[in-house]
Design a protein around this nucleic acid. Structure first.
Length: 416
RNA sequence: GUGACUGUAGCUCAGUAGGUAGAGCCCCGGCUUGUGGUGCCGGUUGUCGCGGGUUCAAGUCCCGUCAGUCACCCCA
């Protein structure tokens, strides 16, 4: 019995669901192509180290959310279902020796897996789209990446229902300085911090900044600002990003409390957030990850990108209209059935979408044609057969006309 | 992993003080033996999430378990 239910946190995507997903992913693919991104697909599992070495030893994703399993065969690696795709794309970038071809721009889409407690907008198997821009160290790379994302959201009709929040984490030097100051500051309040935040103090002090605990927030209010810890390089970089966002008319809200859960980010961090999806506000999030490729053993190469949740975006868009509305072919009787078989084959090869309706009485078949949204029904009975014609019923208007079999394709062109 | 709430037909839900289940939609048949979408008439919906317990009697009360939702955590 329980085996008939999908595994916890996984969902079947029925035709209407798929239509929404495709609207999201196809739009993203199309728009990102306008920014010269090309699609790439990596395997859905990788050696565990691809993720464990890059996402950060203390991140929740690595410590408790990865689906890791032993491969078959002796002495083989442990494998992990990808919890996100940036590390995989970087691995592919190196595996295929693309370092000499930078800049590289990749778009991806596909399922990701995280062992989390399922909620609305949060599943164990979910789908992401994303882009990675590799090899551009300049702030213009960040701007382009954000602009691509904003363009996709606009095309999906959700941009004005999101807010772009942006912050800078600075370069390594700035980040270390800031981290030290934060630890110093929060240590003084250690007794007053929430249980979670006390743990974050050693694991990831920056996370305390976006704590939702009320007493934490009071302490956070007096915390040192990232801006004050930034060195000249980091400051100039961030200013350039903001300046060009202004130039492109992309609205944003600076949020000095915005931090990242994954270790590899530096400089720009951003999120498009919405209030429409409850606790899962982030619909698209990303940033710069200059140290990642080197950290993975490749040549020092800068990168910037984002990922977006397909399910979350799908919940925000309208249900797209059914894209293929077929023509139903309804033969009546043995002789007509044979003629209809050939007609159906001919029409399908002529690029018509055909629903060949062969079971039940005529009433039932017409009803079914209506239910699947057929644009027309071709009725082929003995009357028609005798005269080499077919009755074409417009399912919208109900009008019927008799058309010679020989010119049927031409007549049906208007239904394509 | 923690807490709260929920779980009745394919779907959305009702079920009153415990007395062995109902509505709408969908589906099926007929009015219409070659015509759908709007009408009328009739019909099938079900281990009441699962497993225990209390009781003469449990959808209803208790415990456990699984799942969903929301919040935390975390994140897309």
């Amino acid at each position: 019995m329980s085996s008939l239910k999908p595994v916890r946190g996984t969902h079947d995507l029925l035709p209407d669901d798929i239509a929404r997903h495709r609207m999201v992913t196809d739009t993203a693919e199309r728009i990102s192509a306008l920014y010269a991104y090309r699609e790439i697909a990596t395997p859905i599992f990788e050696s565990t180290q691809v993720f464990s070495r890059t996402l950060g030893d203390t991140s929740d994703v690595v410590t408790k959310e990865m689906y890791t399993f032993a491969d078959k065969g002796k002495g083989s690696d442990t494998l992990t279902l990808r919890p996100e795709n940036t590390a995989s794309v970087m691995r592919a970038f190196m595996s295929n020796g693309m370092a000499r071809e930078v800049p590289c721009r990749f778009f991806y889409r596909g399922p990701m897996f995280r062992y989390e407690r399922p909620q609305k907008g949060r599943q164990r198997q979910f789908h992401q789209i994303g882009i990675e821009c590799i090899g551009i160290a300049d702030a213009l790379g960040d701007v382009e990446v954000i602009a691509t994302g904003a363009h996709i959201l606009k095309e999906l009709g959700v941009l004005d229902r999101t807010t772009l929040e942006i912050n800078t984490l600075g370069d390594n030097e700035s980040r270390d300085t800031y981290r030290t100051r934060l630890v110093e500051y929060f240590s003084r309040y250690e007794q007053s911090l929430s249980h979670d935040s006390r743990q974050r103090l050693t694991r990831n002090p920056m996370r305390i900044l976006d704590s939702k605990d009320e007493s934490d927030r009071e302490i956070v209010a007096g915390a040192p600002e990232m801006g004050d810890a930034m060195n000249h390089t980091s400051r100039v970089f961030f200013d350039k990003v903001l300046e060009h966002l202004d130039l492109l008319g992309i609205n944003y809200r600076k949020n000095s409390r915005l931090v990242r859960g994954l270790d590899y980010y530096c400089h720009t961090a951003f999120e498009f957030v919405t209030t429409e999806l409850g606790a899962q506000g982030a619909v698209m999030a990303g940033g710069r990850y200059d140290g990642l490729i080197a950290q993975m053993g490749g040549p020092a190469t800068p990168g910037v990108g984002w990922a977006a949740g397909v399910e979350r975006l799908a919940m925000m868009i309208e249900q797209p209209a059914i894209s293929n509305r077929p023509i139903s072919v309804v033969p009546l009787g043995e002789a007509a059935f044979k003629v209809a078989c050939k007609l159906v084959d001919q029409l399908r090869h002529g690029n018509f979408s055909i629903d060949f309706s062969v079971s039940g009485n005529m009433k039932k078949r017409m009803k079914r044609a209506n239910a699947i949204g057929a644009v027309a029904a071709l009725i082929l009975g003995e009357d028609e057969l005798d005269r080499d014609v077919v009755t074409v019923r417009n399912m919208h208007s109900g009008e019927q006309t008799e058309v010679a079999l020989s010119s049927i394709e031409e007549h049906l062109t208007c239904y394509k």
